[in-house]
Structure formats: C-alpha cells, structure tokens
Write a protein that binds this DNA or RNA. Structure first.
Length: 334
DNA sequence: AAATCGCCCAACCGCAGGACA
DNA sequence: ATGTCCTGCGGTTGGGCGATT
C-alpha cells in the first residue's frame, strides 16, 4: 500500500501562517464548510497541504476556540481527566469546550506536568513519586480540605447538576425553541459568545453576509429557529460530540459532557427566558451547526426528547425560580 | 548592547483506522 | 479482500521571544 505524499509536493509552503492565508482559509471554510481538506488548498488558492490547512483551522481559526490562560478549574479538569484518559488529548479536549487537544497537550507538557513533579506526583501514574502509592489522582493541594471532593463525589454532583440543566434546557427549548430574540443575540455577541467573530462558518455567500451582520451590530431582521431543525440533531456535524447520539442507551455520555455547560450557557438561557419580543432573526442551519451552545442544546434535546416529553406541556418556570440550579452549575463549572 | 539560554506553543510528522470503490 | 483516500491522533520540532548573563 503506497501512501500518496501529503506535504512533499513542490512549492508547498510550511511554517507560520500569514494573515492572508488565514483569511483565505476562513473564507473558504465559511463558504464550503469543513472537510475535503486534501483538495481545499487548490480550491482556496493556498499553497499548503490539506493537512496543514486542517490543523490551522482546528487549532487556531475555528470560531469556538477559547484563547488565553487556562483557569484553575480547567487545569483541575485536565489533571482529573488525564488520570482517567492518560495522554488521550482529544478525549480530554472534548470535555473542555473551546480548548484544542494541541493546546491542552502543550499546556500539560509545559506547565501542569512540571507542577505535578514539583509536588512529588508522577504525571504518568498520578501517584506519589516518593514510593508512597496513592489510590487517588492528584487533587490540587492549594484548596482547603473543606472544598476537597473525590472524583466520585464530583462525578455525582456533576451528573445531578447536569441532569438539572439538561432538563431545564429541554423545557426552555420546548417553550422558546422557535424563537430567540435578536437582542439576546446582541448580548451574546457582546459577551464574546459563540456568535462572535468573523469566522462563523456559513454555507453560502448570503449566509456569510447574514452571519457577519450578526457579528457586528444586530439589526432588526428576524431570528427563526425551526423546531424540526432543532430536533434533527443527527444531521449536525459531530466534531464536538463524536459519540453515537443515535443510540438511546448512550444518553449517559450527554450528561458526562454537560460540564461543557459554561456560565455562558446559563446566561444565554437567562436571556432567552427574559426576552419574548416579536422581532426575530432568521438563523440558518449552518449557523446553528457552528454554535457550540446551540449544538449542545440541540443534542440534549435530541437525546432527551423521549424521556422528558412530560416537560413538554409543563409550565415554564421563571429563571429566578431555578436560580439554585444555575448558581450551582455556575459555581461548580466555574 | 549583544549573546546566550530556556520556555512556550504553533506547526509538522508519521501512523492508525474508518470509509469507500 | 484489497487498495486508496481521508481524517484524526499523539509525539516531536523549531522559531519566536523574554529573561538572564
């Protein structure tokens, strides 16, 4: 079996990407979506190999990438997840929304690993380096014991809060699935949420325009999210959620992934709840696909629709009445 | 001011494996 | 069953840059 060379072709550029190259790649992906990386460089007018383009997009240009310093909570999560998954960076990255496997890997190698060694903990086994074996993965020692939780406790808490939020999401979507006010979008954009940035991928030029108009100053056009589209989660790209969502028996992983629910999500819900105007923006499917929160919401809806039909006709509770849940979620997930 | 060092992280490399013809 | 394409993954490299000498 002979593999065709990927990056060996004459004249292909390597090394750091220029702004111009970034713009070309962004424009192409916005117009055509992700995938087809091998042929992408030619079509996009880039003198790069497809692999390089894919990496650049996945690790740097993707709109949902969170940049900047890792929070203490994120570092704790990485340590905890590394104890479970080892060097499965992509598995860890799936639990840390907005962080790439590459970023996590780099952060682990340059910061966390050294810190663990300094504390006398073997970063490979997560056990004490002085020979005293520990049954528990590393827990950051700078936290008071009052706040110390073992993994099981955390996991239980996680699941409880996750279920609460997922069910509440279901109710929100039942009530508001078709309508999200444009001022909500405005707030999201202002907060640097998933609708921000020039890179919101769309599938056509007109959609690009629509997207860019959203990302600047929201106008008075309307937002309309089709209910069928929301429930049709199986058609969505699964770069964030790679598990088989068609299997009802695999619902549990949804609640594992609920730690992806950032405070942003609850702010978003809060905004959705508190707005009920008549002006709505049209939101195309591709926008939905590329909005990490909407993707989460969509998949939770898809997974939850069978066993939570009881919620469908239940009255919507004011967000203030479920504050405890959201405070808990926010506090827990940082 | 210049040279050197060490760290950080974006990018690359090679391999594995799924999909498809 | 086989060959090829394509994508994803984990390990590694090397350029940039700040700190130190």
């Amino acid at each position: 079996m002979v593999r065709t060379p990927c990056c060996r072709a004459e004249g292909l550029k390597k090394g750091a990407w220029t702004q111009e190259e970034d713009h070309k790649l962004i424009a192409y992906v916005e117009r055509h979506g992700e995938g087809g990386w091998r042929t992408l460089p030619d079509k996009a007018g880039l003198k790069r190999c497809g692999k390089s383009c894919r990496l650049r997009w996945a690790n740097y240009l993707r709109p949902d990438i969170k940049r900047g310093e890792f929070s203490q909570e994120e570092e704790d999560s990485i340590v905890r997840l590394h104890a479970i998954h080892g060097n499965k960076w992509s598995a860890i990255a799936r639990r840390l929304p907005g962080r790439t496997d590459n970023e996590i890997k780099n952060h682990w190698n340059t910061h966390i690993k050294k810190r663990l060694v300094k504390k006398g903990i073997d970063p490979l086994t997560h056990k004490s380096l002085n020979g005293k074996s520990s049954d528990h993965p590393e827990t950051p020692p700078d936290k008071s014991s009052a706040h110390m939780e073992n993994d099981d406790q955390k996991s239980n808490k996680n699941n409880v809060l996750g279920s609460l939020s997922a069910r509440f999401l279901n109710r929100v979507a039942n009530r508001f699935g078709k309508r999200i006010n444009h001022s909500v979008l405005s707030d999201i954009i202002g907060s640097g949420g998933p609708f921000n940035s020039h890179t919101t991928p769309t599938t056509s030029a007109s959609e690009c325009e629509k997207s860019s108009s959203l990302s600047s100053t929201p106008n008075s056009s309307d937002l309309f999210i089709d209910q069928n589209m929301i429930l049709d989660a199986t058609s969505l790209s699964s770069s964030t959620f790679s598990s088989d969502i068609s299997d009802p028996l695999s619902y549990d992983h949804i609640f594992d992934d609920i730690e992806d629910m950032t405070p942003f999500s609850s702010r978003f819900l809060n905004d959705v709840i508190s707005h009920d105007d008549e002006d709505f923006l049209t939101l195309d499917e591709s926008c939905l696909e590329n909005t990490s929160f909407m993707r989460e919401l969509t998949i939770i809806l898809q997974e939850d629709k069978i066993d939570t039909t009881a919620f469908r006709d239940s009255p919507v509770t004011s967000i203030s009445e479920v504050d405890d849940s959201f405070e808990g979620i926010d506090n827990f997930f940082g």
